[in-house]
Amino acid sequence: MMHIKHWLRAWPSVAMALSMAALAGVSLVGQASSSKPAAPKKAPFPVALHAGAAAEDYLGEKTCGGCHPAYLESFEASPHAQYVRDSKLPVDHRGCESCHGPGKNHLENQEEGELQKHIFAPSKASPADVNAMCLRCHSRTMSESHWKKTAHARGDVSCRSCHFIHKDAKQSDPAARATRDAQSIRKPTAVAVKETQHLLKDHEADLCGSCHKADVAQFRQPYHHPVPEGRMTCSDCHEPHPTRTSLRKGSMRVGLKNPTQVCATCHREVAGPFVYPHDPVTGASGDGCVECHKPHGATNPKMLGAFSRGLCNQCHTDKNATHYPGQTCWASGCHAALHGSNRDPNLLVR
């Protein structure tokens, strides 16, 4: 009886397991019931360019540079150039052709309308095709299955939206730099800023902010996490490539985050566990830390949604105007351990 009750309580997991078993079953039955031998899986367009190529179809960087000298020069300045020159790499992972596909067919099919069929041009390709090509080598950063689970994948964001492959000429173009500087959320008065890494097209905060504009607006508020000051970047809390599991990043589950764990990376002193925890801090009920705090930016120093008693009274309505009127709940020195206490159930002392 107890077991039945337990399984009834666990209905979401049970439903999920049954659904997945059904999905797997349908796909396996589908494969098994086919009387013909299974056809080889057809690779998507850019990957298929490599799949059907022989070693002599790869012409080498110098041949490409003969017609595309500017691209070859900008590629030279990119760290990518270093990695595709390892002589131990298979021929389809070397030079320009590692990303663009074998050059022979491209060279032999120069007619109008034929060019794009025999070579892969990321600037003209769909996000799905770009990502498929990048993941040929970067599968250790992100598997295709992981990528499908991200909001970026659902929103048709490609790797190229954030990363450049060749050296980005706009990085040093004065007009582009001036426009970027004028619109940036970064405060130029701060110097100890985090370096732009991973071939990102811009400083991380500005790059993310180019789409997530409402979040940028919050960082412009007077109190914020020190992203504009360069002490933090978006990826300190957010994981754009949720492949690995890590305590520090808080991604205990595939594609999901535990917000409370992310906050505890820096704010360990308020994470507990406590003998007397404040319920939202446990993260199990409500939204965890963001139940009270606004993590990007807010109108008060503790980055809370509301000021003083107004915050607490939203839940604790019984602590009304007769409960120490004229006092704040914590700054007056009463509930000093409002995240949790090991000594006092009313969170009066740490």
Binding site: L23, S27, L28, G30, S143, S145, K148, V254
Partner: peptide, 11 residues
């Protein structure tokens, strides 16, 4: 995480 079939991923 595994691509069980071309149209199904599970993990």
């Amino acid at each position: 995480v595994v691509q069980a079939t071309p149209s199904v991923d599970a993990g």
